[in-house]
Amino acid sequence: MTLEELKAFQLQARSVANSLNHLRRSEQFARATEVAVALEGMIRSLHLDSRHHRSSSFFFIMFGLITLGHESLYAPAEVRQQIFYQYKFGRRLILEMSTALKNFESTPAEGYLYWWSSLYEDEDWLSYLQDVCSKLVKYDITWEYRREYQDVVQIAERYFQTQRHHRNIL
């Protein structure tokens, strides 16, 4: 994965999330399924693309999922309501993040963290993950396993601390 690919993915996610902006609210609500399906396709594409980037697949998938969460949170209100309440897109994202974290294999993070900071103005990816998860959980108040949103952040923090510790030893 390159920085350009990550930027292109971010732009595509933003475009999909806001693809209905030009429509009236009622039309946005009626066509929100199109956005949900396109976002779901982007999740699948992360897994397909990560096969070509084995050494960076964790970062490729995690950064992609965080980006999808962030961009979908800025979709028009009618679209957000449908994709999060009706289609449970937040759950899908958090379960994908959880799976990525549980399959995490330690890889050098420096280059990938630089890419992240290039995209998101030096904001730490864990802070960004925490922010996205805290917003997504608000759309999923009835889910029995809504603690997953918090657990994902905690697992990511542990891995990041491990990465930082290994770098300090070397």
Rank of each mutant, 00 (worst) to 15 (best):
A36P: 04
E5F: 03
S19D: 12
E78K: 09
I169P: 04
L126R: 11
A156V: 05
L3C: 11
L119C: 15
V152Q: 01
T33L: 09
S26Y: 08
Y145T: 10
S72D: 06
M42E: 06
T67I: 09
V152D: 07
A8V: 03
V132W: 01
V153Y: 13
N168I: 09
R51A: 09
S127R: 07
Y120I: 02
F58W: 05
H53I: 02
A75D: 04
A13Y: 04
T107M: 06
Y145A: 13
Q150Y: 06
W143L: 03
L170T: 11
L170K: 10
V152M: 01
Y112S: 06
Q150G: 00
L170D: 06
I83V: 15
V16Q: 08
K138E: 14
R51D: 10
L113N: 08
M62V: 13
Y74L: 03
V37H: 09
S118E: 15
H53D: 08
D122N: 15
R54C: 05
E110H: 03
Q81T: 14
F63P: 00
N21E: 14
H47N: 10
D140C: 03
H22R: 15
N168A: 15
E123H: 13
K7W: 07
L93I: 15
L119S: 05
L20Q: 14
A100E: 12
R44N: 12
T162P: 00
L65M: 06
T107P: 00
S57Q: 14
L46W: 00
I83K: 04
G90H: 00
S117D: 09
L20M: 08
D140R: 01
N168Q: 12
A38K: 07
W125T: 05
S19M: 11
R24W: 08
M97A: 12
E110Y: 07
Q161D: 09
H22A: 09
I94S: 15
P108G: 03
G41F: 03
Y120T: 03
C133V: 08
G111V: 00
V152N: 10
I94C: 13
Y120S: 04
Q161A: 12
L113Q: 02
L129A: 10
S134M: 11
I94G: 01
R91I: 13
V35I: 09
K88W: 08
F63D: 01
E5G: 01
Q12R: 14
F89W: 04
E96G: 07
D124H: 15
A109M: 12
V37I: 15
I66A: 07
Y114K: 14
Y159E: 14
S72H: 05
E121I: 00
M1C: 05
P76D: 10
E40A: 05
F84L: 08
A13Q: 04
E148C: 06
T2V: 02
L39R: 02
R164L: 07
P108H: 06
Q86A: 03
A77F: 11
F84E: 03
S118W: 02
S56D: 08
E34D: 11
S98G: 14
F104D: 14
H47Y: 15
H70G: 02
E148P: 00
S15F: 12
F160N: 08
R92V: 00
W125V: 07
F89T: 01
T33E: 13
E157T: 09
V153Q: 04
Y74A: 05
F104R: 10
E148V: 14
W143Y: 15
G111D: 14
T67W: 04
T2W: 10
A38E: 11
L95S: 14
F29N: 03
A109H: 08
F63E: 00
F9V: 02
S15Q: 12
A13F: 00
